[in-house]
């Protein structure tokens, strides 16, 4: 199954991860090992703790118990190799920045403190922008774009980071079909390159067939594995509490 010799990227191991939000338990004892090389969708109902799981894995919020390791180090201490695209609602889209400014943010860590962006860095950013089909919008203000275009710019920023681990939180919210196709295409390419690609999603529609593996969550891990394994009536009832329709094409 695993082929580390080809990928070099180690798996991420989540052990006994629990998170509290004020007084309520947001995540309970999550244990999962995430292998590189497949496109993984994190699914679950509203309030299931999907974003919380991602943020806790990255050490962005405090955890009650548990560790998240990548290789033999905590994932949180290797964040320079992580690209994270937050939910749209987290961003102030009226910020005075152009598309180019946003993509270049992906080169900040690699460039290092007190250094200017290098010519290769600019080339990497330009290539990333080209890959998502947004080159002609380079000098546009980020707030002047459509939701889908904004999401593609953020994907370009993530690509420009040249990361090994990618987290996308609800990237398909409010995007057009073209963008959805571009996103899935690039997610699959990244997975095929041996990267770790985790995508928080809540849409159980047709698009679910793009994911190689599903992580079904409702405050605890309900199941993790292939679509066939995860999308069972029992699991869906446990996650969504009964009446739910999901796309069941094999």
């Amino acid at each position: 199954m695993t082929n580390f010799t080809m990928t070099e990227t180690a798996p991420i191991a989540v052990n006994h991860l629990s998170v509290n939000y004020r007084t309520t338990q947001a995540l309970r004892n999550i244990n999962v090992t995430i292998e590189p090389g497949s496109l993984i969708g994190i699914f679950g109902p509203n309030g299931a703790g999907k974003s919380t799981l991602v943020q806790a894995m990255l050490g962005l919020i405090p955890v009650v118990t548990g560790q998240v390791s990548w290789g033999d180090q905590p994932l949180a201490s290797q964040r320079e190799r992580v690209a994270y695209v937050p939910q749209r609602s987290q961003i102030d889209w009226s910020f005075p920045a152009t598309v180019w400014d946003v993509v270049m943010m992906g080169r900040v860590r690699q460039t290092g403190w007190f250094h200017r962006f290098s010519v290769p860095s600019r080339r990497i950013a330009a290539a990333a922008l080209e890959r998502v089909g947004m080159s002609e919008f380079r000098d546009r203000r980020i707030g002047a774009l459509s939701g889908g275009q904004q999401q593609r710019v953020f994907l370009a920023r993530a690509l420009a980071q040249r990361a090994d681990v990618f987290f996308f939180d609800e990237p398909f919210v409010g995007v057009d079909q073209k963008t959805e196709a571009v996103l899935f295409q690039i997610f699959s390419e990244l997975a095929a390159e041996g990267k770790i690609v985790l995508v928080v999603n809540h849409d159980l529609g047709e698009s679910i067939t793009h994911f190689d593996q599903l992580l079904l969550l409702n405050r605890e891990l309900i199941d993790f594995g292939s679509r066939d394994r995860v999308l069972t009536p029992t699991n869906m009832t446990r996650a969504y509490g009964g009446h739910v329709q999901f796309f069941s094409a094999a």
């Binding site: 962005l60 964040r79 994270y84 937050p86 102030d92 943010m105 900040v108 860590r109 980071q161």
Partner: peptide, 13 residues
């Protein structure tokens, strides 16, 4: 980076 997207900046270390 921090002013525009604090979470993304933090996640990038």
């Amino acid at each position: 980076f921090y002013s525009f997207d604090p979470l993304g900046a933090q996640a990038n270390g």
